[in-house]
Structures are given as structure tokens and as C-alpha cells.
Amino acid sequence: MPKIVDRAARQEEILDAAAKVFARKGFAASRIEDVAAEAGIAKGSVYLYFESRNALLTGVFDSYAAKAAQVLTELGAGSPLERLSRLIRATLELLAAHPDHARVLLDVWASNPPIDMAGMYREYRGAIADLLTEAAADGALRPGIGAPHAAVIVGAIEGCLVQALVDPALSLRDLTEPVLQLCVEGIRT
């Protein structure tokens, strides 16, 4: 009797293996064979799910982007600054919980990736800008703080991520409270 394979589960296994390989070796130096070996499958099995290395990278990015989009949809109720705090906390936790994905993102930032990173940033900046606009309308922000500061908040998160990735002595989770103190409490009236 042939072995029944859960296609979605196998695809996730391959994506997880690809994220590990890309994070460890860098995207440019990684091969399909490396991903197959990490996943414990034959090279040809990878091609049943992904037509190329670029398709694997896109899959890794899409998998991470779906997790990031979920963060945006789960902000819940509360004041705009409470929701901004939850967004920052959840984003830093997501990045800390998926260091391989974060390393892959760092690797492809410097290249011309076949993925829409600008779209992901626009979505996050837009969500933060909406919260800042709402907080300003509620009178909860210091004068001069508004939607343009969304890029600065994203930059603070990304800057902490880069530092934690290059310096293993620095814990991204330990930076959550300092980021909240500056990016939420620092702009509050």
C-alpha cells in the first residue's frame, strides 16, 4: 500500500528546511540539494512542491508574511496606543520565535529578491499609521507625532532585529519593553 503524504504538511516541512538552510548558508550559496538533505527527503521531492530555489524563497517569505499578517488581524480592542503596544509585542515575539525566517529576510534585504518586501513594509507602516492617526484624534499623542512616524517605529523594530541577529548575546525578547517605552510611552501625551 502506498504511503499517504499530507501535501500541506510536507510543503511546510520543506519550507522550514529551506528557512534553516537559507539562514545558515545564505540564499545565494544554498542549493535545492541542501534543502532536501535538511528536510530528509530526495532532491526530486522538493521539485514536486517548488519549481526552483526562487520559488522556495518566495514560499519561505509567504509563510512568514502570513504569520505577520495574522499579527495585524489580532490587535483586538482598546485604545490605539494599547493596540500599538500589542502590535509591537507580537511582532517582536514573532521575529524572536522565527529566527531563521528573520535571518533569511536580512539576507535578501541586500539583494534583489523575487518577493514583495516593500508591500509587507507598506502593510505594517499602514497599520501603525492608522493607529497613530486614531491616537492623535483621541488626543493621546504628543504634538507633532503622527502617521509619518510609522516608518520610525518599524525602523526601531527592524534595527533591534538586526542587532539581535548579528550579536547572539542580545535577546530580541529582552528589547520588547525598551522598544515599547520609546515607541509608545515616548509619544504619549
Rank of each mutant, 00 (worst) to 15 (best):
T91W: 01
G119A: 05
E13F: 03
Q163R: 14
A69V: 09
E123A: 15
A110P: 03
A90T: 07
A102H: 06
D167C: 11
P99F: 00
S45N: 11
H101A: 14
R7C: 08
V166N: 05
A8S: 14
M120N: 11
Y47G: 10
C183H: 06
A164S: 12
P113H: 08
S79I: 05
G139Q: 06
T73G: 12
R31G: 13
L165D: 03
L106N: 14
T58Q: 10
N54M: 12
G78V: 05
S52V: 03
G155H: 01
G139T: 04
A164D: 00
L105V: 02
S111F: 11
G139V: 01
Q70P: 09
E82H: 04
K43N: 09
E123Q: 15
A65S: 11
A77T: 15
A90F: 00
G126T: 00
V154T: 09
C160D: 13
D130L: 13
S111M: 15
V60T: 03
G26H: 02
M1N: 05
D138T: 10
R31E: 15
Y64T: 07
G126Q: 07
G126E: 06
E13I: 08
A18N: 04
S45P: 07
C160Q: 15
A17H: 05
R83Y: 08
W109A: 14
P143R: 10
